[in-house]
Computed example of a mutant assay.
Amino acid sequence: MRSLLIAALLFPLTLAACGQQGVKVPADYALSGSLGGDWGTSPRLRLALVGSGVPVAVTNDSAVAQNVVGTGMNNWQYGFDLPNIPGVAGVYQVVAYDDANNDAHLGVGETVARNRLWLVFSPAGGTFGPFELPDNWPGGGAELLPQMTVSRGWNLYDRSQALGDANPRAVIKITGYDISR
């Protein structure tokens, strides 16, 4: 009888441990930064991971754990969890958007902002790229991403800086991934 009572008491704790994690403060996410600029009146700001994996696996994912907190007029802090993408090399950005239709999905016509920081995921360290736009796309044949050396996992590439020993760099936690309109 005693073991049955203990099991009955532990069951709700076991279920709670299996559930989704609660919303965290922005700094506790794998990627965090600020959002700024004029987003209009009462925007529904969300974040999405967009990009492309190899071989051609387009990503537009807003169903990633995130939190956007207003900190003043036209200023927000946010946190975003980077998903685990085993076995798929790719180039991504986290973009902010006004989810005008409130469907939690980045859609055509919604206001979007991004920065010059690219997230490069590689299942193994080594040479990555170059990648070019397909010939049948507008601007086809143009270099999208130069050849670079990356580490296994997530790497941060700042397109506004020259490639070098620290660009791109391996990352586990990213702060200051600021986005503004």
Rank of each mutant, 00 (worst) to 15 (best):
G141N: 01
G19V: 06
Q20P: 07
G125A: 13
F11V: 07
L163S: 04
P123C: 02
I179R: 00
L15W: 01
A63H: 12
G79I: 00
L106Q: 03
G107Q: 14
A17P: 09
A100T: 12
R46K: 12
I85A: 11
R181E: 07
H105P: 00
L47C: 01
E110Y: 02
W154L: 09
K173Q: 04
V25L: 05
G37R: 01
A170K: 14
L82V: 00
Y177I: 01
P86N: 05
N67Q: 08
L117P: 08
N75S: 14
G153F: 04
Q161A: 14
A7G: 03
F121R: 11
A100N: 07
A124G: 07
G126E: 08
S180Q: 13
A63S: 15
F11R: 05
W76V: 02
D28R: 10
G107C: 12
D165S: 07
L82P: 02
P83K: 05
T127F: 08
L133C: 04
L31D: 09
G140T: 05
A89H: 07
A104I: 06
P83N: 05
N74T: 05
E143I: 06
P83H: 06
E143H: 02
L9R: 05
V150N: 00
A162F: 05
V150K: 01
D28T: 04
D81H: 03
G53P: 09
R169S: 10
V69T: 11
W154P: 08
D178P: 09
V94T: 09
A104N: 10
F11A: 10
K173M: 02
K24C: 04
S34T: 13
G51F: 14
G79A: 00
I85G: 08
V95H: 00
G107F: 09
K173C: 02
